[in-house]
Design a binder for these strands. Structure first.
Ligand SMILES: [Mn+2]
Ligand SMILES: [Mn+2]
Ligand SMILES: [Mn+2]
Ligand SMILES: [Mn+2]
Lengths: 224, 224
DNA sequence: ATTTTTTTTTAGATTCGCCTAAAATTTATC
DNA sequence: GATAAATTTTAGGCGAATCTAAAAAAAAAT
């Protein structure tokens, strides 16, 4: 059960795309992996051979159970390494994705379980995404998009669904990070922008695009 | 300046073989890398193109300055990761080589410098081998083979030149590890075996083969 | 100085992951 | 329902890294 870096990247990409749409298209994969559709088709045939995916020409692709298991192992490694890089080595959360993209392919199972232990078995990575455990179980994290937060209700930032340097730069400008308490004080119909308070500070305005990538947790009956 | 894992493994192997013999043969490389001489010749041509080595057909191979620099960077990564695995994750020193063989190819320079910092800038890896610094300077470690230690002189084990599980198993059986104090109490002409004391304990006998792989440090004038 | 042996290189193939260009199929539009 | 557009697959090829078998060169032995 040892797969190439390339195959592992395909499996992980299919896993992520399945979250949006349960059947993944060749083009979507090509876009995600920055490769060409023809190359994707080639690879899908091989992954199908190895029973990591269900694939029929023109019909799109789905992970098999073993494909899913593999995807979760890779994601576990990715997120644990990201946590290590931020918590132990002091990297910024926008720098770690690229490095973890390499580290996630280190094969030793023992390594990753020891690392997990060393890090104190964290539940989420620096971007707030859940870390699957050794058995591949993903901790369920209750979160809703900031866009859906009612006015006047306080909530904590749990995760961000975009990790580009530009996006994280903007967050840093607003002094928002994972764990920061947010409250919507006003909504503007025209552009759907939001006025919010950050950590109880003065109100600031953020765009709908930004808010769409912020996920928060709040108790439903909690008023403040 | 980004090279494939395979090329990096060749460069590192050439570096190590150069320590024995300044001009490295195709066969020696094939043996070291567990590959075929024909494959080595192919690769030597490419490394020569990229000016990592000096290579002329039938004349053997040597690293260029940039090849040497690259080798030291890879060795630095390898040994820092080994240190991390033993000191932070609690691996045994016989388990780490294989994992480090993968980790040494992770490309981020910033990662390795942060790791170095995090580990407290160690001077040697778990096998006692020196760790090159960020500039590629290898700390000089004074050591001599245990075979050359005079009878009755105490010395500390500094490094081992063989890291096979079998060898480390034997060392563990004798309760010898890096830092252990050894003293030769007798030499036997017949098979060149040695009688030694370990950490001042009762005398035990070790073979010439084992002793040849043990390197110790002792002050020349130190009698005990 | 030949001959034999060993080492090294060349020739030709294979697998992997990728590409472009063209063909096939599906989906959308009139 | 025919036609146009988009998606997907096939065909053919390429570079990297490997291999086996054969040829060439160097080293060792007689
Ligand atoms: Mn990756
Ligand atoms: Mn992440
Ligand atoms: Mn390696
Ligand atoms: Mn080592």
């Amino acid at each position: 059960m040892k797969y190439s870096t390339s195959k592992e990247n395909y499996i992980k990409a299919i896993y992520h795309l399945e979250q949006e749409d349960p059947v993944v298209s060749t083009n979507a994969l090509a876009r995600q992996l920055a490769t060409k559709p023809a190359s994707v088709t080639d690879m899908l045939k091989k992954l199908n051979e190895q029973e990591l995916i269900h694939y029929e020409p023109y019909k799109g692709v789905k992970l098999t159970d073993s494909g899913n298991k593999l995807a979760l192992q890779i994601i576990r490694k990715h997120r644990l390494w990201e946590f290590f890089l931020v918590e132990k080595l002091g990297f910024g959360w926008e720098e770690v994705h690229e490095i973890a993209e390499e580290l996630e392919h280190i094969s030793s199972k023992k390594l990753i379980d020891r690392l997990d232990e060393f890090l104190g078995k964290p539940k989420t990575d620096p971007h707030g995404d859940p870390i699957p455990d050794a058995a591949g179980i993903v901790p369920k994290i209750e979160k809703r998009c900031l866009l859906d937060l009612p006015i006047g209700v306080s909530a904590d930032l749990i995760s961000v669904s975009n990790q580009s340097a530009d996006m994280l730069d903007l967050l840093r400008h607003h002094q928002i990070e994972i764990g920061t308490r947010l409250k919507i004080t006003n909504r503007f119909r025209f552009d759907h922008s939001l006025q919010i308070t950050v950590q109880g500070g003065p109100p600031v305005t953020i765009s709908e695009q930004l808010a769409a990538h912020l996920y928060v947790a709040w108790a439903k009956d909690e008023t403040d």
